[in-house]
Structure formats: structure tokens, C-alpha cells
Nucleic acid binder design. Structure first.
Lengths: 184, 184
DNA sequence: TAGGCCATGTAACCGGTTACATGATTAG
DNA sequence: CTAATCATGTAACCGGTTACATGGCCTA
């Protein structure tokens, strides 16, 4: 859950920099079930190093800022295993889209339709991107994880396509004058 | 996303108290895509009232603490529509379970198996509970939303059951001595 | 030449959680 | 007799986000 464990997990697959860890957890292999920003990753890495769970070396590259390459230590591996061994917290799912869907009756049709279309496009992109990830990964467990994501997302997309008309039919059916004005 | 909008959305389905809103967003109809605690709901309701988006009345019940019943105002309805009309943020999915899955090779088999079993049981309960929600709801849009959740979750569960053996096969295959010790 | 990418880091801020305070009633 | 449920509210804390600072290179 917390960023420190996430960094350890990513580093357990090989050396990396703070910049790369951020990219991977936002765009890359891990993007669909974790997230982190620079403001949390860099302090996390610094603290991991202070605790002896990772080491770092500087790589000076001409014309580019030097990279600080982190590697996990044995103690870090052990800490990772320990952290992942305690019963995992519940999966968290937060959806503004479903909040809109739930309130469909109070919302103008174009808002509901717009939200559905945006959601469909977003899932399409996520599936597409996860497929690339699957193709490029080499670790079988990571492939399993990404593949599980592809399957679930693709099904969610299919469900949405199949049932969206039912939701759109309901849109606006509880629209009061007040709302109609506010929706302009 | 934020708790204030969530409160408005729930109140748009009828009067409610802070206590009930919390229950609904943790156990009830909205639990699978939103979340909120007392510490965020009560201040949110107070601020909504100060802004004229909700009103409250006190109901004194013998032998029980008085309930403060909130109702949405026209201005509140308008604010809700406005908030939900701007393009929704991405859905958020965070999964400790998938982090464990991804690191399966580095983890002892029993940890991976335990996590899978816990996850299966958790989804089963969630599906079961959402089915109750669907049966008890009367608003069609809310039913659509809960039904969408049931379908997606049930499929995720089926996927997990079908592929779990593949993941369990990989568990522990990268286990070093260090980890083996730490796992005791 | 404007903007994006690479790359690291800091600091202010903020939303939300956790824990506490209060207290009567009911179920085990 | 204990624990849970009902019910509201406050305050400390904390993890994480946003924004800023820096700066060269490359692309449109």
C-alpha cells in the first residue's frame, strides 16, 4: 500500500531510479493497481536508503542530469517479503463515473452520455496499454498480473457497452427546473 | 470524488443523517465505489449547511441520541449537477493483492495461496452483499450501477478461480535464503 | 522558440483517517 | 457484565499531492 513497499517491490525486479519508478507506476507495468508521485517516491527512497533496505549509486551521463540508481539489498528483500506476507488490505475502487451513473436520473442526458463515452475510451486505452505491457514483460508473475488486469478490464468494457443504453434511457428523468437551469 | 459531493449525491436520494451516510458508503449501496469516514462526513455536512446546499432538522428520539436529519436544497441539487457535469476523473483501483501476485516468485507459496484465498472470499462477500443491495434498491439508475458492479466483480472472481493455479505454480521460484529466513 | 522529456529534490498544503469524548440502550 | 449499536462531533496527525526550483537537450 504505502509508497515504500511499492518502491521495494519495483526494485525487486531490478535496479531503477526514482524517475523510472514513477513512470512505471503511472504509465507502465504497475500503473493499473498502484500509483505514486515524485513527491512521495523521492522521500520514500531516501528513507529506504537510510534504513539500509536499498543502496544507490550515481551515474553521470553527459548532457543529462545524473541518475541515482537504486538497488534493493538483502534486508530490503526480507522487508518486502515481510510486508507482503501480512494479510493484504481490501482492494480499493473509487469511481466518479459510477457516481454519475448512480445519479443519472438527476443529470442531463448529454452529461451521462459524455461520461459513458469518456469511460469507454479510458478503458479502451488502458486495455491497449496493458496489452503492450504484457507483451514486453518477462517475469511470469508480472505477466499473470497484467493479464488478469486485461481480462477484467476488457470484460468491464464489454459490460458497459452492452448495458449503456439502459442507463442512458434513465438520464434526465428526474430533472427539475432548477437543475435544468444549472445545467446550462 | 470529495466527500461533499458524495454527501450531496446520497442526499439527492432522500433525507439522511451523517451516521446513515457513513453506513451507506461503507456497507451499503455505495460501498463499492466510494468511501468515507465520520471524520470527513460530519465536517462536510456542516460546511454544506453553511453554504446553503443542505438543511438540517433535529429529531429527538427517546432513549437514543438525537438525529440530525439533512435534506438537500435546490441550490444543493444544482451544485451536485454542476459537480457531476464536469468530466469525471479516472477510476482508481488500488490492490495490495495484485502487488503480492506480481511479486509471487519472491514469496513463499503459502503467502500467495493465502492471499488468493482471502481475495476470493472478499470478492464473494462483496458480490453477495451487492446482490442484496440490488434487490433492495428502487432507483433504476442506482440498480444499474450496483448491477454493473455485481457483473464485473463476479467476472473478476471467475477469472481468479480459473487462473489461480498458474500463479500458485510460480510462487517461491525466486525465493532466496534470505527470504526463506525472513518468512519464518 | 515553445514545450516536452530527462532527472532530482523540497515545501506548503490539504483531505482524510484515527482516535478520542460522550452517553444511553440493547443484545449476548 | 461486556460489547455492540446508535449518534454526533473534535483534534491531532500523516501520507501524499501540487507546485516550485533547476537546467540542459531534443523535437515540432
Amino acid at each position: 500500500m504505502n509508497v515504500r513497499t511499492l518502491c521495494l517491490a519495483i526494485l525487486s525486479f531490478g535496479e531503477s531510479t526514482g524517475y523510472e519508478i514513477k513512470k512505471q507506476s503511472v504509465d507502465g507495468k504497475f500503473s493499473y493497481f498502484v500509483d505514486a508521485s515524485f513527491g512521495s517516491i523521492y522521500p520514500a527512497l531516501a528513507r529506504l536508503e537510510a534504513d539500509g533496505l536499498v543502496t544507490s549509486r550515481q551515474e553521470i551521463q553527459p548532457g543529462k542530469p545524473p541518475r541515482k540508481i537504486y538497488a534493493i539489498t538483502d534486508a530490503g528483500q526480507a522487508a518486502l517479503v515481510e510486508a507482503l506476507s501480512e494479510p493484504p488490505g481490501r482492494d480499493i475502487f473509487r469511481s466518479e463515473f459510477l457516481l454519475i451513473a448512480m445519479c443519472a436520473k438527476s443529470l442531463p442526458q448529454h452529461v451521462v452520455t459524455g461520461a459513458i463515452e469518456a469511460r469507454i475510451q479510458a478503458i479502451e486505452e488502458e486495455v491497449e496499454q496493458l496489452r503492450h505491457v504484457v507483451a514486453e514483460l518477462d517475469d511470469e508473475a508480472a505477466i499473470w498480473t497484467a493479464q488478469y488486469g486485461v481480462t477484467c478490464k476488457a470484460q468491464a468494457l464489454a459490460n458497459l457497452r452492452e448495458t449503456r443504453a439502459d442507463l442512458e434511457k434513465l438520464a434526465g428523468s428526474r430533472l427539475s427546473n432548477t437543475n435544468a437551469n444549472a445545467a446550462e
